[in-house]
Design a protein around this nucleic acid. Sequence first.
DNA 1: CTAACCTTTTTCCAACTGGTCAAAATTCTT
DNA 2: AAGAATTTTGACCAGTTGGAAAAAGGTTAG
Lengths: 245, 245
Amino acid sequence: MPPIKMKNGKAATLPKHAAAEGAKPASKPAKGRTAKPRPLTRIQREKQDIILEAALDVFSVYGFRGSTIDQIAEVAGMSKPNLLYYFPRKEDIHRRLITELLTTWLEPLRALDADGDPIPEIRSYIRRKIEMARDYPRESRLFANEMLQGAPHIIDMIEVDLKNLVDEKAKVLEGWMDAGKIARTDPYHLIFSIWATTQHYADFDVQVRAVLGKDRNGEGRFEDAARYLEQLFMAGVLSPRKKGA
Amino acid sequence: MPPIKMKNGKAATLPKHAAAEGAKPASKPAKGRTAKPRPLTRIQREKQDIILEAALDVFSVYGFRGSTIDQIAEVAGMSKPNLLYYFPRKEDIHRRLITELLTTWLEPLRALDADGDPIPEIRSYIRRKIEMARDYPRESRLFANEMLQGAPHIIDMIEVDLKNLVDEKAKVLEGWMDAGKIARTDPYHLIFSIWATTQHYADFDVQVRAVLGKDRNGEGRFEDAARYLEQLFMAGVLSPRKKGA
DNA sequence: CTAACCTTTTTCCAACTGGTCAAAATTCTT
DNA sequence: AAGAATTTTGACCAGTTGGAAAAAGGTTAG
């Protein structure tokens, strides 16, 4: 049983690729139509990161409407107007977080390789998902919060990108089933159940810790969970040949 | 495969046993110390129900902080001061909802019978949990929202009542494992995974529907889910004899 | 050094928030 | 039907909220 390898324990925001949209501080009117984006100074990048960090803290707990700019500004250690200088609107911060999140969030599933060995592929997918719950609980909660509200800000991404990805991977799973390499079940619900069980450890963390009690709620709980879930899903997915009930 | 039996589709609040605490409209100063509770008029009961219904709608989506009294009042079809006449504080409404919820929420687990047949017991527990996700999605989301925020309002109930119940049922499961009636696994994580997978269908409903696509997102998805989950957990729990790896 | 730019702070505001209060309208009791 | 009790309403309030404006403070290139 390979132990889950810990990533850096640091609470870093997920990859901050390119500056994405907007958040352009008050500059000159930007001549013509094609306003050259202008590469972002060091300070701008740093401050934006600090803000996004703070916002993740706040949004992931209270959701969009339940969070206030003042609160985020305080966590970020700056004044509200200063924060608004970098992100003119509350929504801008949120959008940035949530779109970046979505990309990263689906990485593990994207990595599921049709040409790989089915059992290890699935097993490592599960392991990676638990690692994410452990290492990025705030991101998980941010996502959960958005879902609970009906995903108002990302519904179209869900309906297109996410759906396409899942459709694709569901086909991969079905291929494995057809080849008798894994037991036959509903690939969609299989994926849902992996999401549900792994993310549960981030989203319902309080509950998990409370129920496990003082003695078992150390960081080891993630390894226990990993072990348990591997066992569960392996049992559910193994035993090929067993075609249609 | 017994089909899940539909309960009334009506959107009723969970059982409203006794008037619980407070919510006493402005009355006479109530003589002495032992203010006789006075049995609640018909109007009071009706209005409170309407308010709780509306509040459930709102709180379950936006969480406590993200919801406003005005919003709830509007959904309830009454003026804010009128609403406040029945529940003097926002928190009162929320507390009522969430404590009632907790009781109901744990019913299925409570029903897990140590003297019953293990496999059917577990199977029917799962079925009941899915039915709840289907019939009481708002309650599920209210609970999820509370968890995401660290369960500030019910942390002590979680740490005591919930923990005790789970401890008790975990022992039941362990008993079955010792008797070789079900496969050996971690009973706590088994319970967590049942919670996670079933509640997922209420909490992440948008996602589930979006991914399943237009053709499969009818009400039938709950039956598919039930079927899938029974299969998954039966595989994970069956095969006794298979002691320690 | 200084002009042009970038960053931060101060001040301000209108809309919204949870909640109060007294008067008015309704319902219940006798 | 009168009087008491309950329910509803409208006006109001102090604190918070998201955000605008502009002045003040820093940086940096020439």
